[in-house]
Design a protein around this nucleic acid. Structure first.
Lengths: 220, 220
DNA sequence: AATTAAATTTAGACAAATCTAAAATTAAAA
DNA sequence: TTTTAATTTTAGATTTGTCTAAATTTAATT
């Protein structure tokens, strides 16, 4: 199925917001797309019409399976083109986004798959984001600092940035190690410290300094 | 300056028709673009408005300098992408046109120039058409058979396909050799023979068989 | 030269995507 | 729990590119 560039942009933005915020609001989507809430509402109706979106007026919305599949294909194209621009055409990683915003709407599926092969089936784009494969599967997950993790989002510890023994001791004391599944249950804006929950354990508090050095990936 | 995909398509089609037919008509353009004459007229007004086109109603039209420059940039993009698809992504030369029709509308000038460098500054696309350089100059001209040359269009002999001695003798007798400037002054549909004029000489007649084996390039 | 035919343009409509301003609904605060 | 505020949606307009049908202009024929 082929969708207009504008529809693809909406699908992609909803997918990202859904992923990061759990729930998507009309205002948030309008802000993400640099457009107006009224315009978003118009588009939501069309996407629902095309059975890409679960949506009832005033009651929020989210992509259904079809919508997610479509969004992932756009993301795949975007990230493959970014990879191409940086690795083959010598662009800087910070100047490729705008161009990829255009390239991602080229429709040929065959083109994307050939490009993928030409690039050697990369699984991470120049910004560190995972590139879904031809079937829409993310083989790699995005690695971020624990301090960037949204509230109540389950994640898994994937690396420790600064491996001083003092740091490792502190983490070990708090039962945090590679592979530990955790989520942030509270954030304290005063000093940016975090309350972290590990399954079937009392919550522990981590300083901003520690959180910055714990890298996590989305849990599925 | 940036133009819509539809405008770029019109500019490109006018450029080609202008080049091949000398004069462009509303109907011919509509046919080339698979659209309606009325739609073409609408677009002509907009292109005139934007000072890309010399146009007065009912009196025909042609691109001005600005229009030509814009058209050539689109053609450059189209042909570079075709070259990329065939040489790097292993597409067949006969399956790249449609994809290039989309890619040619990506706007970044920097992208095109980087792509050009990545491809090694090719001067001919996979169909044998010349690729204009970054400044819009055609360094290579298209080679076609004399039998495909339009009426009254000046061209220059660039190659002889079948070099039998009988053929060369015949050509020599008619004062035709590499570099000869000529034009077709008449075509005889009965046997597809041609009357050919060479500057300051009486016209000569060539059979379809001979014409097929004489290759020519546009003269500038 | 008058008539017919072909080409071109205008007039008016439509679809997609967007907008502003006003109305409806939901959420937050007093 | 009213009242107020924020969010979301509707109604109606705008822009771009397209269309059909009718009118106009130019070209071709008799």
């Amino acid at each position: 199925m082929k969708y207009s560039a504008s529809k693809e942009n909406h699908l992609k933005a909803i997918f990202h917001l859904q992923h990061e915020q759990g729930i998507v609001t009309t205002n948030a989507l309008a802000a993400a797309l640099q457009t107006r809430p009224a315009s978003v509402t118009d588009m939501l109706k069309k996407l629902k019409e095309q059975k890409l979106l679960l949506y009832e007026r005033y009651k929020g919305f989210r992509l259904n399976n079809e919508g997610k599949k479509a969004a992932i294909q756009v993301i795949r194209k975007h990230r493959l083109w970014e990879y191409f621009l940086v690795k083959k055409l010598q662009f800087g990683w910070d100047e490729v986004h705008e161009i990829a915003e255009e390239l991602e709407h080229i429709s040929s599926k065959k083109l994307v798959d050939r490009l993928d092969a030409f690039l050697g089936f990369p699984d991470t784009d120049p910004h560190g984001d995972p590139i879904p494969d031809s079937q829409g599967r993310f083989l790699q997950r995005r690695q971020i600092s624990l301090s960037e993790l949204p509230l109540n989002k389950l994640a898994q510890v994937s690396a420790i940035a600064s491996q001083t023994s003092e740091m490792l001791e502190l983490l070990q004391y708090n039962h945090i190690q590679l592979g530990t599944r955790l989520l942030i249950s509270r954030k304290f804006p005063f000093d940016n410290s975090l309350e972290v929950k590990i399954r079937s354990r009392p919550p522990v508090t981590l300083s901003a300094q520690v959180a910055k050095n714990v890298l996590v990936k989305d849990d599925e």
